[in-house]
Write a protein that binds this DNA or RNA. Structure first.
Length: 361
DNA sequence: AAATAAGACAACCGCTCTGCT
DNA sequence: CAGCAGAGCGGTTGTCTTATT
């Protein structure tokens, strides 16, 4: 049985604040400071509950609040932090001076979330929505969760369409991760009625957890992000390079959720364009860490703001199967950036046209 | 011009956490 | 340790504004 709402008491006003009420609250706090919110309204002569006063002050009247549109950088920061922290709005707000958790939450729900959805990106997982590409069923049908590591490797490489290029070590690592995740899945399913597709993608889908489709965000431990001294960690994810990754690993700091980024050079949230040598290859060919440019990995740039302006949509055109999706659809938001373009690399064996046809029928 | 729908955001509700007794 | 109150958080609702028909 919960406590009765503080505003249940008779005579306490609810709803929008009037300028007079605002002024009373401001005057009182300027004189006496804030503190005991329960007694504050009475002392300030307000017919409001303390909770309402606190909310009004912290979300609206506080002098250090920055009003107005979110800037490009702020939006970028919100997306990046949300990919790490999830709906921890207060933690996100702590990294955005002058913005309140409520404001960020509202902005997320009304702007960013919708934009990501339009782009085919799951706003919860920050990964491409597999329910759109129906990759999950494809994974199941291809015996992706096969028991033998060898066949898992084969399936994975086949799925990713990169068999000739992949580093076997990476594949091995991914396979062992798969194995762990499969175990987790079994454990989890044993205890839960587990039906949410989004959760499924978030927690167990190997396509999501490998760097191929993850938004290339280093896996900060949440507690570290909560630390006030955030500067010691790379605030710009794209600056988090291989060296940082090595330091990160050697520091012994935990990877959250048991997840590991397979390719440390691909930490750029935008998808960096660095290359590294694949020691497993006898010749001098390089393995593009920016998978989208060479292999058939599917990659995407959640940070769509940085992409150049509009290009025509073309699907599955050409051997490289580079697919541009103008996610903005019919609605072009005037704010912040010039285009909502994202770039997908679709494996050859996925017939996107067929898929789109099926979706429209 | 009026009615309606959609969008945006302020405010509320219920729950949890924390500190005090 | 339990109970209580204050404070904070995240999800949801309500209200106002703007766009569309």
């Amino acid at each position: 049985m919960g406590r009765a709402p503080c505003c249940d008491k008779n005579g306490l006003k609810k709803g929008p604040w009037t300028p007079e009420e605002d002024q009373k609250l401001i005057d009182y706090i300027q004189k006496h400071g804030y503190g005991n919110w329960r007694t504050l309204p009475k002392n300030a002569g307000l017919q409001r509950c303390g909770k309402s006063c606190r909310l009004r002050w912290t979300n609206y009247l506080r002098p250090d609040i920055k009003r107005g549109r979110f800037s490009f950088e702020e939006e970028e920061t919100i997306i990046q932090l949300h990919s790490i922290l999830g709906n921890k709005w207060s933690a996100i707000a702590a990294r955005l001076p002058g913005r309140t958790d409520n404001e960020i939450k509202n902005y997320w729900n009304t702007h960013i979330r919708k934009r990501l959805l339009r782009m085919g990106i799951d706003p919860v997982t920050h990964s491409p929505r597999l329910d759109l590409l129906d990759l999950s069923s494809l994974l199941n049908n291809s015996s992706f969760y096969n028991n033998t590591s060898q066949s898992s490797q084969m399936n994975m490489s086949r799925l990713l369409g990169m068999q000739p290029m992949v580093n076997p070590d990476l594949l091995k690592l991914a396979t062992s991760l798969l194995s762990n995740q499969r175990q987790n899945l079994q454990d989890y399913q044993g205890n839960n009625d587990f039906t949410s597709n989004a959760q499924m993608q978030n927690n167990f889908n190997p396509m999501v957890q490998t760097n191929a489709t993850r938004p290339c965000v280093p896996y900060f431990d949440e507690a570290q992000l909560m630390e006030p001294n955030f500067e010691q960690y790379p605030t710009s994810i794209s600056n988090f390079d291989a060296q940082n990754f090595d330091q990160w690993q050697s520091s012994g700091l935990p990877m959250s959720d048991g997840l590991v980024n397979i390719q440390p050079t691909n930490f750029g949230y935008y998808g960096s364009d660095q290359t590294f040598m694949d020691p497993s290859l006898s010749d001098n060919s390089t393995f593009q860490s920016n998978i989208s440019s060479h292999s058939n990995f599917m990659s995407y740039a959640p940070s769509v703001m940085s992409t150049p302006s509009s290009s025509p949509t073309h699907l599955n055109s050409g051997s490289n199967s580079t697919t541009y999706v103008n996610s903005s659809g019919t609605e072009d938001e005037p704010e912040s950036y010039s285009s909502d373009m994202i770039k997908f690399e679709i494996p050859d064996f996925l017939d996107v046209n067929q898929f789109l046809l099926a979706q429209t029928n």
